[in-house]
Simulated scan of single mutants.
Amino acid sequence: MKTETGTRLLAVDNLRVLLTALVVAHHVAVTYGNIPLWYYTEPAADPSGTALDILVVFDQAFFMGFFFLVSGFFTPGSHDRKGGRAFVRDRLVRLGVPLLVFLLLLRPLLTIGEHGMPFWKWYIVSWDPGPMWFVEVLIVFALLYAWWRRAGGQRAGAERGGAPSLKGVVLFTLGLAAATLLWRIPVPQGTYVPVLGLPTPYFLPQYAAMFAAGVVAFRRGWFEALPGRAGRAGFVVAGVATVVLLPPAPRPWPASGACGSSPCPRRSAPCSAARWSSAGPAVPGCRRPTWPPGTPPWPAASPDGGHRGDGGSARRPRSSRIWPAPPAGAAAPGGRPPGPSCPIPRPRRPAPVL
């Protein structure tokens, strides 16, 4: 099938449309699934939440990497046309200005609510690029590419060479897997980088490798030279890998009703009672960590028995994540809730945004 018309690759356009739709579906799934890492969450009360969790785990494994692949593909041509200085200036304006607008103006609007501290203080401690983290990382990659070009790492002009070999694809895959494995020793799954706001820093080797692969693909004409059978074969391999690797994959968020490490104890009454009991865990496996000093007091109770970061407001703005209500008679020292044993966003800062 012909994938090119003039100088425009229709296959890349199709990929961008597909990825954009997948991003929308991904965040809808986060909203209504059991992984509360979004501005507003409303977990499903039926098994559909588990299906949405599976979608999130599945597409998180690759879809942002593909965005960086596409970004890397368009980077060399832009640098060639504009030159180094103009390229950097263009990237800082086109990417940096939206990032600053979100950080300085839109972010505070999304986090309006009662946070147990003056708004000016909340404005500072809640600093987080939110969904603009992709733009933040892309600026860094673009600047590194410009520096590499200035250092003589690559000259302008095409270096056509045909499609990558099967051996090259296999070696790239194995190398990326090894790099990711080593990277996740100091940066395990679930790590969150505050201020920078990176929700998935444990995927950085993939993001960097895919961006670099996009740069090389542009220079060597890989996308134009790939035959249709390569796409079909890749689709089959990806499907088989998903079937084999997805079931044993670690859950980013324990199943509904799980005790022990469950981050959402309101879904498990016994575990919730054990967590909130000042006498310590009453259920095996239930832990009762503590919030760090300076954590704001409990938000006001909502009519449904939960606790909301908006002080019980019915508007449910950005800070309206529901925290579990303590069982009757279970008081936390100093009026502050005991902390969860996994990363429920604390009221001190916004939730990590996938």
Rank of each mutant, 00 (worst) to 15 (best):
R8N: 05
L19V: 14
P36N: 13
T41F: 03
V57E: 14
D59W: 13
D59C: 13
F66L: 15
F67S: 05
L69K: 01
K82V: 04
V88P: 03
D90K: 06
R94V: 09
R94E: 07
L95W: 00
L100F: 00
V101Q: 00
L103D: 01
L105K: 01
L110M: 06
T111Q: 12
W120C: 02
I124T: 02
D128F: 01
I139D: 01
F141N: 03
L144C: 14
W148N: 02
G152C: 08
G153E: 10
Q154W: 11
V170T: 07
L174G: 06
T180C: 05
L182H: 00
L182Q: 01
P188I: 04
Q189K: 13
G197N: 07
L198H: 03
P199E: 13
F203E: 15
F203C: 13
L204T: 03
M210R: 04
V216G: 04
A217H: 00
G228M: 06
R232D: 06
G234P: 02
V236P: 04
G239V: 08
V243C: 11
L245T: 12
P252D: 07
G260R: 04
P263Y: 11
P263S: 13
A273F: 05
G280V: 09
G285F: 03
R287S: 15
R287H: 15
P289C: 07
T290R: 12
R308N: 14
A328Q: 11
R336C: 02
P338L: 10
C342E: 05
